[in-house]
Amino acid sequence: MNFWLLLVIEVVVMLLLVLTSSLVVIYAELKAGSHMQSRIGPYYAGGRWGWAQPLADGLKFLQKEDLSPTGADKTVYGFAPYVVLMSTLAIFVVIPLGPDLVAVDLDVGVYFVLAISSLSVLGILMAGWSSANKYSLMGGLRAAAQLIAYELPLVLAVVAVVVQAGTMSLNGIVEAQNDVWFSLGSFDVALPFVLRGQVLGFAIFMIAAVAELSRIPFDMPIAESELTMGYLTEYSGIRFTMFFLGEYASMVGLSAIAATLFLGGYGFPGVTGTWANILGPGILIGKIAVLVFLIIWIRWTWPRLREDQLQSMAWTWLIPLALLNIALIAGFKVVF
């Protein structure tokens, strides 16, 4: 009984957290993008600053007819958006918001995150394949190609973190970053990994994460000017909303992982014990916000790469660099 109650609470809290955060990110994208383009952006919905615009958009989408093409594989077509959203939601299960604030503290948290976040590409491939649309198919195939190219640097960048932290538990990784690195007299210095030689790894992780999110400059699976909307072309109504929410939720999810792995997660110098549990979520959200803003900023500034350019960038630059990164970190670890 207790278990089930806890499960329900956990699921509800998690869902609320994820969905609210993606609404907030959608709003942030609308506003930040507008201001970068010297526009005002949403202004009326909600009475002030258009804060309710994402909600209004969501409601509008829900009212739309749920269309599916005649030639579509209806089951797969209908199921695809949920695969994407599910894989995204599952990431949040292992992300520690504080020393004790974690839904499930898996020993192999990193492994779980990497495995489950790649599932979303399966959903995208399903969507592209089942839509019975050539543009969708090409979008889905591009997404699959992108996954193969970018999963490797992503994993390799994480491997370096695991080597440095000596654990695969996300909580353990955060604690490793909160541990005293060295002491200057009586002053203990605890630094996140990004300041402990992981700059390269962090950069590779972020590039790969943006590629996995299919956002500009790596939005070839959608590529509006080339493939109309790629794998999303045929989707409408609630299924489109699912994809949309999934995109923003996974933006938050991957930012949260990046913050946890490289930026010290919920940890902050001087915040320990119970305070870490109270302030932890806020600190983590702050770090996520910075990363999310970075991703939004990139999107509104840069154009799109070409698929083959992305592939050659991944195989000729990122993977060798990630391997070099592992070697350096491992050597560093052995020497000191």
Binding site: Q37, S38, I216, E224, S225, W300, T301, R304
Partner: peptide
């Protein structure tokens, strides 16, 4: 033209 390459922002600035 940048919009076709995926960059959305030059559009607004030069149309303004």
């Amino acid at each position: 033209y940048p919009l076709e390459l995926g960059a959305t922002t030059p559009l607004m600035h030069s149309l303004r």
